[in-house]
Design a protein around this nucleic acid. Structure first.
Lengths: 391, 391
DNA sequence: CTGAAAGCGCTAACAA
DNA sequence: TTGTTAGCGCTTTCAG
């Protein structure tokens, strides 16, 4: 291995140029593949590069070009199979377009999210996909959106940012159907297990159409309430059970519920982690499913067909959620590049009629973020059945 | 586009300096938090920065400092819960140290892996964690290791790279114990379902001590063979079943096996995906578990205690695997930084005794990559029992 | 304490 | 076809 002269660090293009006996410009032209170069110098340069095992410095390149060929992705937890699937799909799509992915977990910690957003911005990602934690995230993201950074919201909408694209599931309707399914089977005392249970007072009277402006857990509660309302049932606060995103916590919450209220005949879980906890709880409680208690989960995972009874669930298109978000982001990135190349004069002129500030053009473009709503669907399996006959 | 207009793109430090009426140097000092600055100019600069919503450009900074505060992670599939857990743990550890993560999936495609390695290198990650696909990966990685890039192998060892740190599981022994458990229960016709089945001829006579130099699937086959050997049984090629990492494929492979060879009384699966396929197959075949067929899986997932019978598995510390790798990497990065600051003269002198080339010092340091072997353990549950009485 | 100027590694005008 | 020369946005001597 030929040792490098200039102390530390990988070789730079000037060292390659020197080794090859050409200028840095020609070296750059052959190594960067952008200009013209004679076969002779091409050979010399490539040879020298190989000898020094040279790799171009992407930082320098990005600094010049103003793009990093990298997209940022911020989720709460890649460990959750739901996000793992979505992230997997995102990587596939962006990689095909030549992008890399910077990934951050926030663990539902607002401070971590703030930091992640800031770092992504400092590292100059070309675009960002984020599953925001809460409405407060909107403030943090607005600055990026205003700066024109391509941005797509994943799974969780942010009504405060109508100018950014959002890719979500029709959670409210799906939940409504899931609960309607239970109602149709004859259930009257239907409990719900949700991370958003505390928000129920605010959500119970929301119109189904408003539901999908909430984060998924909350939207699903809106659907739950709507289904009960349609069936002429009034929600019982005792049946709205809170649990954090943790299987064991969910198990205990359900065990407590069953002990406290033996009359419950059905349970709707707003998420896959909670559903797995509920299955465990039912098994431990000795209640038969679906004979004593029916169960519906949200988010179909592989294990749902392995357990007995096989779980009735709402299946949501996890991978498609990710790939759609990624595609949307790539389009936005491409658009922005296009903008930069266009003549700023004409563009400004074209929008002066409606515009006010000098940069109205870009804002106008960004104003209508697309809202893509992917559809989940109910898959009735064996964990749901008629309630036990009243004693 | 010749030059970017001052308007486009995020504001640079010179615009902030101009707005604040100071030099770029002072602006840099307050915004970068490195020099001294009077309260007066500090206020002016911070104010200007806020007005322009300025964010420092990390690329420029990294270009100067020679570090990006980013680590690369290359795995085959974040969608696989095993890697999802490991990756999750990695992010936690590196984030606590102020690093971000660049993530790439290779999907077991050597070309994708090659590209990923190259891109990580060009983006100048400060270190790299990789789960290599195959022995050929060693060639690709050797260049990075030689260049002194901190590198840690995750889950899959590469004997050809003794100079790099490797964090793995004691797969061979774990598999051996799993199969010994079946032998102890009285099983004689024990099948194995593995992605590495085709390599069995090469692996069958390996010493258990050599097993852990193989990738996990292969190492587990070595353990399988060793356990049989110890029990005085000879492996039957008909019981070594291949399946790719795909649940449905695994299901069909197992169904075929049971049809072809009804005398099988136990099955060992070398991986969680294959195990889930096997559970599905058993359910569909109508064979009772464990009464007709016992089942052991590798890699404990949440669903293993939800299915009935609850699955006997080898549990491996997935998160710890990731966090250990990350910690190791951070140490290596810190070491390298230290090296750079140290006096190269003394260092060379210290190792001249054993060294030969001028740069022997660094190589000598790197020569002994640590090999960290984390331990899995067998958890006997209800899917294993004595074989049915012979008819 | 502050500013001018020299880079980090690369690309892109412009000359030669 | 090639080389020279400015930068990209920031940090960092080195004077003032």
């Amino acid at each position: 291995m030929p040792h490098r002269e200039k102390g530390s660090g990988p070789p730079s293009i000037v060292e390659v140029a020197r080794e090859a006996g050409v200028s840095t410009a020609t070296a750059g032209r052959v190594l960067g593949g952008y200009g013209q170069a004679s076969a002779a110098s091409r050979a010399k340069v490539e040879d020298a590069a190989r000898r020094l095992s040279y790799r171009p410095n992407g930082l320098a390149r990005s600094l010049i070009h103003g793009s990093t060929e990298t997209v940022g992705v911020i989720v709460t937890d890649v460990g959750n199979p739901f996000f793992a699937s979505a992230v997997r799909a995102i990587t596939d799509v962006v990689r095909a377009a030549g992008y890399e992915m910077l990934l951050a977990n926030t663990d539902s910690d607002p401070e971590a999210e703030r930091r992640a957003i800031q770092v992504m911005w400092e590292k100059r990602v070309d675009g960002l996909i984020v599953a925001p934690q809460s409405p407060e995230s909107a403030e943090r993201l607005r600055a990026l959106a205003d700066a024109g950074l391509p941005l797509v919201l994943l799974d969780r909408p942010l009504p405060a940012l109508p100018q950014v694209d959002q890719v979500i599931i029709n959670n409210t309707l799906c939940a409504q159907r899931a609960v309607a399914h239970l109602v149709r089977l004859g259930h009257r005392r239907i409990a719900v297990l949700s991370e958003a249970a505390r928000d129920f007072p605010r959500l119970r009277d929301a119109a189904p159409a408003e539901g999908d402006a909430e984060r998924p857990s909350a939207a699903r509660l809106v659907g739950y309430a709507a289904a009960l309302r349609r069936a002429g049932l009034t929600p019982d606060p005792g049946l709205i059970v809170h649990s954090p995103y943790d299987r064991d916590a969910a198990t205990h919450a359900v065990l407590r519920l069953l002990r406290r209220d033996p009359g419950v005949t059905a349970l709707f879980c707003t998420d896959n982690v909670l559903a797995s906890g509920a299955v465990a709880a039912l098994q431990r409680s000795g209640r038969a499913c679906p004979d004593d208690v029916s169960l519906v989960g949200f988010d179909d995972q592989e294990w749902t067909t392995l357990v007995r009874p096989r779980l009735t669930v709402v299946r949501q298109p996890n991978r498609e959620l990710g790939s759609t978000a990624a595609e949307r982001l790539l389009e936005r990135i491409a658009e922005r590049r296009g903008d930069g190349a266009g003549d700023p004069g004409t563009e400004e002129a074209a929008t002066t009629g409606s515009g006010t500030a000098p940069d109205a053009a870009r804002d106008a473009d960004a104003q209508d973020g697309q809202r893509l709503v992917l559809r989940g669907r109910l898959i009735a399996r064996d964990s749901t059945g008629p309630p036990p006959a009243v004693s």
